[in-house]
Nucleic acid binder design. Structure first.
Lengths: 344, 344
DNA sequence: AGGAATAAGGCATACGTATACCCAAATTAT
DNA sequence: ATAATTTGGGTATACGTATGCCTTATTCCT
């Protein structure tokens, strides 16, 4: 037999000792007001003594509510699949806190964007709702999102907040953040600001950031030169390549606004290799404020997204959907973090 | 009503359409051999049509098996609680993969080391077992581990593998890794190697690494100078302080073996500030190979732990415990990653 | 050919909780 | 004082699946 049969106590055991019925135990422990104070205290005391804990499966089965949220990471399939975007990893902390505060369990999965999510998580009652995290080509997963909507799966995702979003969306104020970055660089006397990142609508968040930069330039009556925009997806390699392309094209620039810190780091590295000094020759500003951002030399000026609010809002918004309450606002302001890479 | 009552299909619905009983459906879908091939295929087909998925709660309740594992991070309480050790974060990826491959769900929590884990996860049938991840003062949580053992909670933890471990433990070959580091530095002509990290038994993994370094020194007939060991816990600040202390004490050294990359990064920064060149004046080697390690200048030589094996072994070992099978081996070799910070 | 083994699946039930409904006693209202 | 509530809790049952125990055809063996 090996294993002890110490018979995990059930609500019946408690009921017996308390001299009440099982339903009363259930009610007492859930704080129903149709149990007297005295009885509740007695029951709670016994529960503590017996080291009782509600069986999650029975509870969820009966109540049709799992009090669990599934956090799903999806990204464009990477070759190794090992490295997760550090920004989302950081968000993990904030989301776990938000769920823990509400007594929710958090299920996580890194599986690629699939069309079976609603089956795997919602239909099977594993989770009451999904949080979707990931960059990636928007158009690629649009159809999946529609499927989720069609199957009435509750979900929220992190991304660019638009009026025509499919499903609930929470995200940073990317346009405002782009403007912040632009204004900062302009205030430093920079005039020719390169933007490294996809600027098309397949990557709405990046596009928003670029748009914000444009707004800042416009406000300062500076021209927007399309030659200064170079595609870069998210890796260091992309950033490096983009800088090399810029230099090879002979385009003049005195600043770089990278759509992510990884891109920025790659860019700085390429600049260094080409004999350019940061920030003297070229100021660099990134986005996300990943841990490595403060470790580069010079340390990277960047935009910091409010992760605490992010997790909180994602969870709150999801819960609101599940409980059919009105949803909270969904755009979160971002903050400029000035470090060495933009001078000063 | 607002919400659709599309009546999620149950095994009864399938049974009805297939003209069999509900138990047969259950058997068919679980692959019981007492259902004929033909019937099984028919049932699977219908299940697919109806978009059926087994209710996880009912299934777990009946079978008393949740097929879920809880991943718990514990660390010495940090002031903000926000930043998680990047090494463990990286391990998260490997563990999710290992669980996903086995069709297990993964529950995660960052809550501090508590004494209620068995209640919260195992007794409530949320999870079949726990994976514990975290550095921290061993003596602090020893009692908690004993409680887990006492409550017959299934768990594995990551750490220093000893014969007298409480509960199942999986970990890197820290002694071997320390030796690797030492041998590498010695091969580079270094003779006075400082060790930054706690070396006492409150931090067994660090102690093992120090021991490995000692072994390498001994083998090369070099003396072990206690003055060259300086405490450092895990942050950059610790690394920086340790280097400053070394310099202030006037101890000569031409290499540093830091017990973690964060410590190493802090040390490199301090060296830079003091006008010491890395690697010319002092070679530096870290531990963990966190993403930021390749971003420093010079890039950090470090020890890379085999994360894939780690996740796989943790999960396998836990599962073995749950299913009362013999457990696999538990010591994982580590690898030296040579970069610029140790020269050449 | 007749009994033994096997195959395929039905029947009944248990897992542990939450909740709709009901009922008696105590309280309040009129 | 009697009807109308309220309080506190009991009864019965449902949530959806998995499994032990039977039953009935088949197939097999000698």
């Amino acid at each position: 037999m090996g294993r002890k049969r110490s018979a995990k106590p059930t609500s019946f055991d408690i009921a017996y000792r308390a001299g009440v019925s099982q339903p009363t135990v259930s009610r007492a422990l859930r704080g129903s007001k149709s149990v007297s104070e005295a009885t509740r205290l007695r029951i709670q005391e016994i529960a503590r003594e017996l080291n009782y804990s509600v069986d999650k499966n029975a509870s969820s089965l009966r109540s049709q509510r799992s009090n669990t949220i599934a956090l799903l990471f999806f990204e464009d399939p990477t070759p190794d699949g090992a490295n997760i975007n550090p920004f989302f990893l950081a968000m993990l902390g904030s989301i776990t806190r938000a769920t823990a505060n509400r007594g929710l369990d958090l299920l996580i999965s890194f599986q690629k964007m699939e069309d079976h999510w609603h089956t795997r998580y919602q239909d099977s009652h594993r989770a009451d709702g999904l949080i979707l995290l990931g960059y990636g080509d928007y158009t690629l997963y649009e159809s999946r999102l529609k499927q989720l909507v069609a199957s009435e799966t509750e979900f929220v995702r992190w991304g660019s907040v638009r009026d025509d979003n499919i499903g609930a969306t929470v995200g940073s104020d990317n346009v405002g953040a782009g403007r912040l970055a632009g204004e900062h660089l302009i205030a430093q006397g920079r005039r020719r600001i390169a933007f490294l990142g996809q600027a098309d609508e397949h990557y709405p968040e990046f596009a928003d950031r670029y748009r914000g930069l444009g707004a800042a330039l416009e406000q300062a009556s500076l021209p927007i030169d399309p030659l200064l925009q170079r595609d870069a997806l998210s890796s260091e390699g992309d950033g490096r390549a983009a800088v090399q392309a810029l230099l090879a094209a002979g385009v003049q620039f005195d600043a770089i606004f990278a759509a992510s810190d990884l891109i920025a780091i790659g860019a700085m590295r390429a600049l260094g290799e080409m004999g350019k000094n940061v920030p003297r020759d070229v100021a660099v500003i990134g986005f996300d404020d990943i841990p490595a951002a403060s470790l580069t030399s010079p340390p990277l000026t960047t935009i910091s997204q409010d992760l605490n609010s992010a997790g909180e809002l994602l969870v709150e918004s999801l819960l609101a959907g599940i409980e059919e309450r009105p949803k909270p606002s969904k755009v979160i302001p971002a903050k400029l973090v000035v470090r060495g890479s933009t001078g000063g």
